[in-house]
Structure formats: C-alpha cells, structure tokens
Design a protein around this nucleic acid. Structure first.
Lengths: 204, 204
DNA sequence: GTCTATATGGCGATAGAC
DNA sequence: GTCTATCGCCATATAGAC
C-alpha cells in the first residue's frame, strides 16, 4: 500500500515543483496579478483544470513560493542561535545570508518584496505567512532600541536585495552583485553596531 | 474666449490631480493590477465613465504618476551639471536627492519599483518612460567602469528606497528613515569612490 | 491525473443622453 | 463633465467524463 502511494506521490510532487518553478518565472517576469493560471498551465503543456488538481488556487501557488523563503530564514535563525555573542556577529550573519543565496532563492525574495499588497492581504486572511527577518533582527535589537538601530540592522541583513534591485536594467553579473552585497553589509554592520552601542550608553 | 476655456481647464486640472493622488494611494496599498478604475472613481464619488473623461486608460494614469518621478530626476541632473567635479560630489548628490524627498515622491518611486513588469511593457510599446537614475549614474562612471563601481554608485543614490523598503512593517518614522538614508549614503559613497579610483588605476 | 465544457463574475473601455 | 447602460473579454474556478 505505502509503495503505490509513495510512487504516486513522487510524480505528483515533481509536477508540483515544476508548476512552482514556472510560476516563479512568470511572477517575476510579468508580475503576479498579470500572470494567469492559463499562462502557467500552457507553459507546462497542460490545461488550467489540471493545474487546479495540484493547487486549489493561484494564491496557494504564491503562498507555497513565499514559504520557501521562510524555510531559509529558519535555517539561518538556527545557526544564529548556536553562535556566541560577539561584536562581529551581525556582519557574519549578513555574510552567511548572502553566501547561501542562489538566484532562485533571491527571486523568491523579490517576489515577496514586490508583491507586498497581496502578501499583506493573505496574512490578514489567516494564511501562514510570517514576517520575514523580524525574528533575526530581534536577536540584535529589542523594542527599546532606537528606530535608527533597528532600521540599520535590517538594512545590513538586506543588502543582497538592495544590490539586486539596484542592478535591475544594468546587465550586471550575479557574482558581482554578491561581492557588492558583502562589501555593503560590512560597512552597514559598522553603522548598525555603533547605533546599538549608542543606545546602550543612553539607557545606562 | 481664453478666459472661459482657462477656467474650465483649471477645474479639469484639479480633478486630474485628485485622480492621480487617490490612484497613487490605491496603487501602493493594493497594487496596480488589483486596483480597478472603479475603486479610484468611487473613492472620488464619481463613476468609471467620468474618470475616462480625464484619462483615456488606466495605463495613462500610471504613466502620469511615473513621469512625476522623472521630473524630479531632471532637476537633480540639472543641479549636478552645474557642480564642479569634486571627490565628495557623489555623496553630496545622494544627500541632495534624499533631502528633497517627500513621502509622496517616495511613493511614486516605490510604485515604479514594484511595478517593473508593467513599466517595461509600457516602455516597449513606445510610451515616454525613461530609465531613471541611469543618466545621473553616467556622470560618475562610464561603460568602461567595473560592474562593481556602477552598482555601488547606483546603490549610493538609492539608499532612500533601500531604507524605506527595509522599514516596511517596522513602524518607523519618516524622519528616521531620512536620517538613516543619509548615513548609509555617506558610507556607500566611500565604497563607490574607492571602486571608481581602483578602475582608474587599472586602466592607466 | 488530465481532459472538455461551462459557470460566474469583474475588468477596461465605449456610446450616447443630459 | 458626469451620468446610465452595455459590450466584449478574460479571469478564476468547478463539474464531470475518461
């Protein structure tokens, strides 16, 4: 019994990931709203209806893609919690995040970033979509920290998105983007750490 | 004759700018594609048809909004061309750009940024939409410059967008965002200038 | 698991009266 | 300059045969 089920499952899973992959491509190229279920289905040589066998709605496809991103963040969070506190921990965290970035993972981040309205709407309707970097940021700052410190920490962790979004239309190699993101993360982590210790001086 | 026409024009222009303002609000909140002409019209207490008297299409509304952004950039470019070359010119340019930023102008930038696919499509269909920062960037680098230098210059000029996009969901005051954008622009301009002079050393 | 056929509804846009 | 009415289209989504 479990054999036949698992082999059915496997091919089903393959189709699912093909759908997710082509959907991501379209969502990035044409935008989420402008991509129709039909576009995705026909690019895979199937009909809309078949696609609805695998996902109950277009939104469900988006949710699945977005959640891939949070799986990544989860891993980073786990690593971070096993690190001893150190002055350069923020910089190393940012670099680790950049180093494990692939184009596809990055595309998912852009997707989440450029479709904030849909994602907020989904979150309101009780979908399981969480708030991204927030937990990681909370490892470095707390609610008493200055807005400046919190913002700088977030920007330090997000240089890869900033670099990528700056590179649009510039015909720049992915590797160059990673290099620049690393440099940027280093100088921003300096600003962030300085802002954090300024907070501490003030509160003591 | 010209009197009656101009007074008609004036009220027409007022309606136009009301439409643009409310459209921007919806486009940011719900996204361009998810905002219907109906949403915009009803928020203004009119019908779709009336709106079509002022703009021939939804795209035309978007184009008008986007073009506001380029008017800003034009001013910056004019200022820049009257400045003597100096090592800190990039930093000062970035700061000037940040200092003349208002929330509404920033929203237009976000709109342009989160709707890249639509904008690219419009550009292909021959609409008058140009490529943003590129001309300003070209004042600091050229086609022989390294990808690193070009990307860093662009990021230096774009810290306000980066700061704003990092601040999403963080409940941070607009003034704090400006402060952080300025700090960030300063350190990034350093990296950029260093990359530019590294290019020069290599080519000579 | 994929298909054909169809339901249902909203969208952008237009015609034409006032 | 605003309205009512309507067109034509394509979207998401479902029903049911194979």
């Amino acid at each position: 019994m479990s054999n036949s089920i698992s082999s059915e499952r496997r091919s089903g899973e393959e189709t699912r990931s093909q759908i997710l992959s082509i959907a991501l491509k379209f969502f990035i190229e044409k935008g989420y709203e402008s991509t129709s279920i039909r576009d995705i289905a026909e690019a895979l040589g199937m009909t809309k209806s078949s696609l609805y066998y695998h996902f109950r709605s277009k939104e469900e496809i988006l949710i699945n893609l977005i959640q891939l991103r949070y799986a990544q963040l989860e891993e980073l969070l786990e690593w971070l919690d096993n690190q001893p506190t150190a002055p350069d921990l923020l910089e190393r965290t940012a670099h680790r995040w950049i180093d494990c970035t692939t184009i596809e993972r990055l595309q998912v981040m852009i997707l989440a970033h450029t479709n904030q309205p849909v994602i907020l709407r989904l979150r309101e309707t009780g979908q399981d979509i969480r708030s991204g970097f927030q937990e990681i940021i909370n490892r470095f700052v707390d609610n008493n920290s200055s807005a400046e410190a919190r913002l700088l920490v977030r920007m330090t962790l997000d240089t890869i998105s900033a670099a990528l979004s700056a590179s649009r239309g510039m015909d720049i190699d992915f590797k160059e983007i990673l290099i620049v993101a690393r440099q940027t993360a280093s100088v921003l982590s300096n600003l962030a750490v300085r802002a954090i210790s300024a907070d501490h001086r003030q509160s003591s």
